[in-house]
Amino acid sequence: MNLFRLAGDMTHLVSVVVLLLKIHTIKSCAGVSLKTQELYALVFAARYLDLFVHFVSLYNTVMKLVFLASSFSIVWYMRKHKIVRRTYDREHDTFRHHFIVLPCLVLALLINERFTFREVMWAFSIYLEAVAILPQLVLLQRTRNIDNLTGQYVFFLGAYRVLYILNWIYRYFTEPHFVHWISWIAGIVQTVLYADFFYYYIISWKNNVKLELPA
């Protein structure tokens, strides 16, 4: 475990837990894409299948449980909670996310580290995570208002991805034959998706103006 990876996991944890706590506190999910949250819940469900069969460390197990619990709680709040569900922007959150789930599944069947159910599901979760943010970014562009709830969420998620890339670079140079093309390529694609959001986020922050994404 290196510092980049620990910082990346903590940033990822903060992004999900802060989103859950904010939705729980203000009883609103305005600006949050349910599609992205559902995709993330699917990512964790597909990736952590080995939760009870393959013990890596206490940290690993605890974090997996926290990620599963928080991502499914957010989906529950947005779909079932009588107050929160009314604040969900249904007509704008229209990204057809099955258009990205299926290609990711096909890709996982074609490109994986080993053709076993768990490995294919693991690759599927890696590919899906790379594009899971798309419905949220589309929603932000459509509604054009980025209140701090979603802005911070996307910002922390982007920061977690950047830290993970630094983690891979560190591990590549410190661990012999540490090569994971699947995670690396998907991770770089995912981080690039955040790049333009980061650009506009930092500009708006510097000019102290409301964050506007180009149409």
């Binding site: 996991d9 690993n60 974090m63 580290e113 983690n167 540490f178 090569v179 994971h180 995670s183």
Partner: peptide, 10 residues
Amino acid sequence: KSEALEHDEL
């Protein structure tokens, strides 16, 4: 090889 396949990252 089995080590490489053990996904130790979240």
